[in-house]
C-alpha cells in the first residue's frame, strides 16, 4: 500500500492558539478516511496541514513526491465583484477546452451550467462544480472539508453516493471531514476522532446491533452512510490533557462497543473483505 501523506507527532498553531498537539496521521492510496470531532477540534486545521497551507510548529509532514490533491473546501465565498462562469472556474488554474468542461459537467450530473455565473448557483450545484473541478486535477488524494455543509439530506446523500462512485472509478484516496459526529461513511476504512489531539482512531465496527439507528441515518442515503456515535463529554486543560477519563492517551485505540460505553459504532457490513 503506497503511503500518500504521513504526519508524525505534529503540533499546529492557528495564530497564537495551539489547534493540534502531537498528531499522528497517515493516508494510503485508495483508502477512505473520515475525520470527525466537535467544533473547534482542529479538523480543518488537519486538512490545511495535509494540503500544506499550514506548517506544523513541531513534528513532520511527509507527502509522496508529486502528490496530486483535489480539494473541495468547506465553503467558497466568491466576491460579487468577481464575475466568473462555471466553465471558466473549471479551467483554473489550468485552461480547459470548452468541450471538456461540458463533458465534466455532464459527468457531475449538472449539465447546462457552463455559462452560468458561479455566484448564481444553488448550494448543491455549487458543491458538484467544486467536486468536478477537484477531479480535473486527476488527484491521488481527494479532500472534502465538510463538503455537504448547507446541503439538505437528499442533496448530501446524492453527493456522498457520487464520491463513492468516483473512488471506485478512479481509485483515489478520499479524506473527509465531518463535524456531524453521528454520521460518517460506512465505506470509511478508518475513522479518526479529533479533539485537539487524536482521541482515537480505527475501523468503524461492523455492528449489527441497534438497527433503529440505521433506519434513522442509513436508509436515507442508500446505505452509504453509517452511524458513528461518540460522546465528547470530556474537556481539556490548557496543556491539552484530558481533565477526566476518556480513552485519552490511547493512541492506537480501536472502537469496540463492549470496551467503551461511550462509543457506538455501526456500519453497513462490508461486502468486500478487508
Amino acid at each position: 500500500m503506497e503511503r500518500l501523506v504521513e504526519i508524525a507527532d505534529a503540533s499546529v498553531h492557528q495564530g497564537a492558539t495551539v489547534a493540534l498537539t502531537g498528531v499522528d496521521f497517515h493516508i494510503d492510496r485508495g483508502e477512505i478516511v473520515t475525520v470527525v470531532g466537535p467544533n473547534g477540534s482542529g479538523k480543518s486545521t488537519l486538512m490545511k496541514t495535509v494540503i500544506g497551507a499550514l506548517k506544523p510548529s513541531a513534528g513532520a509532514v511527509k507527502r509522496k513526491p508529486g502528490l496530486r490533491i483535489g480539494y473541495v473546501p468547506q465553503k467558497l465565498q466568491i466576491d460579487p465583484t468577481l464575475p466568473i462562469t462555471v466553465a471558466r472556474f473549471l479551467g483554473l488554474p489550468r485552461r480547459l477546452p470548452r468541450a471538456q468542461a461540458l463533458e465534466v459537467l455532464e459527468q457531475a450530473g449538472v449539465p447546462d451550467l457552463a455559462d452560468r455565473q458561479m455566484a448564481r448557483l444553488s448550494g448543491g450545484q455549487f458543491q458538484r462544480v467544486l467536486l468536478a473541478r477537484a477531479m480535473l486535477e486527476d488527484p491521488d488524494l481527494l479532500i472534502l472539508d465538510e463538503a455537504t455543509q448547507g446541503l439538505d439530506q437528499p442533496g448530501s446523500a446524492a453527493f456522498y453516493r457520487q464520491i463513492e462512485e468516483i473512488r471506485q472509478a478512479k481509485g483515489c484516496a478520499v479524506l473527509m471531514v465531518s463535524h456531524e459526529l453521528h454520521v460518517v461513511m460506512a465505506a470509511s476504512d478508518r475513522v479518526v476522532c479529533l479533539n485537539g489531539h487524536v482521541c482515537c482512531h480505527g475501523a468503524p465496527e461492523i455492528v449489527a446491533s441497534a438497527p433503529e439507528y440505521r433506519a434513522l441515518f442509513g436508509s436515507g442515503t442508500g446505505g452509504a452512510l453509517a452511524l458513528y456515535r461518540h460522546d465528547h463529554d470530556h474537556s481539556h486543560d490548557s496543556e491539552g490533557n484530558c481533565l477526566h477519563d476518556h480513552d485519552c492517551g490511547h493512541q492506537d485505540h480501536d472502537h469496540t462497543p463492549k470496551a467503551d460505553a461511550n462509543v457506538t459504532s455501526l456500519a453497513k457490513p462490508h461486502a468486500e473483505a478487508h
Binding site: M47, Y71, L76, P93, I143
Partner: peptide
C-alpha cells in the same frame, strides 16, 4: 491564473 485561484480561495491555491 495563479493570482485568480489565490483570490478565489487560498486553500484551493495550496491544493493546486
Amino acid at each position: 491564473s495563479a493570482l485568480l485561484v489565490s483570490t478565489l480561495n487560498p486553500d484551493l491555491a495550496h491544493a493546486s
